[in-house]
Nucleic acid binder design. Structure first.
Lengths: 121, 121
DNA sequence: TTTAATGCAAATACTTTGCAGGAAA
DNA sequence: TTTCCTGCAAAGTATTTGCATTAAA
């Protein structure tokens, strides 16, 4: 893990929730940990590839990131405030596997996300 | 409803699913229905405001639109050749609705996609 | 020395806005 | 006329890439 990836992870811990690349860059700048915006983007790309962070989208399409455990799960996201709940998705795993097999696919993966307006909004 | 909004709605019907503003613009161009890209964007903005079309996001953040109330389906996509099969997703609808309600969400929607390697690859 | 990491500036892609000409009321 | 609609070109924003420099191994 490169030095910049560590810095970005640390920044993500500090904000403790969602943050865009631009926001993380600002956080790092404010804390003497100045690194280039390009490097923040590249660090985030690796971290997503490593499945160390989750990549989601804000309503306006901007990418937002956050720390993520290894367990595969799905998200229920509030379209308004971004509040996120991790969801158990056993049904989905089975559905994806079964649908893929029925059509002769192998090496089957899937994505699924639920969105709506949470009770506070 | 303006003339361009009608054209865009018509194009959405023709593609029968999701389409980005850029794709809709191309579809319209190919069919002599040439209208400017700006106008497509503006028509889509009104249609979303009117709740005539849904606005979602692709994984890369590009905005995609679909007719509201369109019976929607999911896709099974081959990672290698791009072959796509439309999948019945009744299970998912229920799962999404139920999971959302359990956490007090309303106005619930979802996205789901399956990918893998098809039998020809 | 050889490789990988960094960051600036430029490029890219999607989307919005300014503005002027044209259509409709 | 007055207002709305259209679309080109320019601006805006998030993200990626080219490339030369620097740090690390």
């Amino acid at each position: 893990m490169s030095k910049s990836e560590t810095k970005v992870l640390h920044a993500l811990e500090r904000v403790g929730g969602f943050a865009s690349a631009q926001e993380l860059h600002m956080v790092l700048k404010r804390n003497q940990e100045a690194i280039g915006l390009t490097t923040v983007y590249r660090a985030l790309q690796s971290l997503v590839a490593d499945k160390s962070v989750d990549l989601l989208r804000r309503e306006d399409g901007e990418a937002i990131y956050r720390l993520c455990g290894d367990a595969h799960h799905h998200h229920l996201v509030c379209k308004n405030c971004g509040k996120t709940v991790e969801i158990e998705g056993g049904v989905i795993e089975k559905w994806a596997q079964k649908s893929g097999e029925e059509h002769g696919f192998r090496d089957i993966g899937h994505t699924a996300e639920i969105f709506g307006i949470c009770s506070d909004c």
